[in-house]
Design a protein around this nucleic acid. Structure first.
Lengths: 131, 131
DNA sequence: CATCACGGTATCCTTTTTGATACTACTGGC
DNA sequence: GCCAGTAGTATCAAAAAGGATACCGTGATG
């Protein structure tokens, strides 16, 4: 193996866990990943409308990071008006068990959020507030 | 259901995932959790020595957040010199499948780290650098 | 008497992350 | 001619996170 890379043996236990978490820990990243997991392919403004409080700047930023980390694919169609589609890569789809486990845990311990602790308050949403 | 709490129906899909991730996304948090998972109970300086580049300030900070979020238990023994033991709570132990899945994913996609993308470089460690 | 280990604090500073607001080029429909 | 929708940028500001360094009281050890 290349010496410039690190192998799993170079670092202490928990290091790869930390590394993996760091890829999905930006604000809205999990929400984006979850939508892409559920709906397959979404355009920029489709995501934006689903996460209605996000600013375009933040959405762009998170999408670019997810793309740089190889978790999502960005496809630009050369047309006007512009059409850019986002979808999970194979690597991104491999996060599925993690996201499911996180969701299960999150739903099970939902009483934590909003009351005490360090977690931010849940946000309201375009799809959540009308019905 | 109480209006002051949120139910899983108040928020969009992915919200609970995001909430769960936010609890484990501080720097070193996963490393700490992993050590506690592996070794059961550890004292402050035991953790500190294992993660040798962490400052006491950061260790304290992360431990207090994990405690506030109900993931770890902090037990102070009234003696001198002080003895403080940290261990996972039941809730913390329920993170096991998540941490395992993250480790599996991280190890499988380890080529990502250090080269490109947004992930930080892996760190060297007390236990990793001698052999 | 000085030093070490214990489990932290206090203070200051830098970096990173997030947010608010305004703006772009282009085209199709009214 | 004007407005809406497309996918973003640019700029500035605020807030949060992280890092460096020094320090605390206590008690045992040398």
């Amino acid at each position: 193996m290349a010496k410039t890379h690190y192998s799993r043996f170079d670092c202490q236990p928990g290091c790869s866990v930390e590394a993996a978490v760091s890829l999905i820990s930006g604000k809205w990243k999990c929400v984006v990943l979850w939508y892409l997991l559920e709906e397959g392919t979404l355009r920029f403004n489709e995501l934006r409308r689903r996460i209605n409080t996000i600013t375009p700047r933040m959405l762009t930023h998170q999408l670019r990071e997810l793309e740089a980390d190889g978790l999502i694919h960005r496809e630009v169609h050369a047309q006007v008006p512009p059409k850019v589609e986002y979808s999970l890569t194979a690597r991104g789809r491999e996060l599925t068990p993690i996201l499911m486990a996180l969701k299960a845990w999150g739903d099970a311990h939902i009483d934590l959020f909003g009351s005490k602790g360090t977690a931010g308050k849940p946000f309201t949403t375009a799809s959540g507030e009308q019905k």
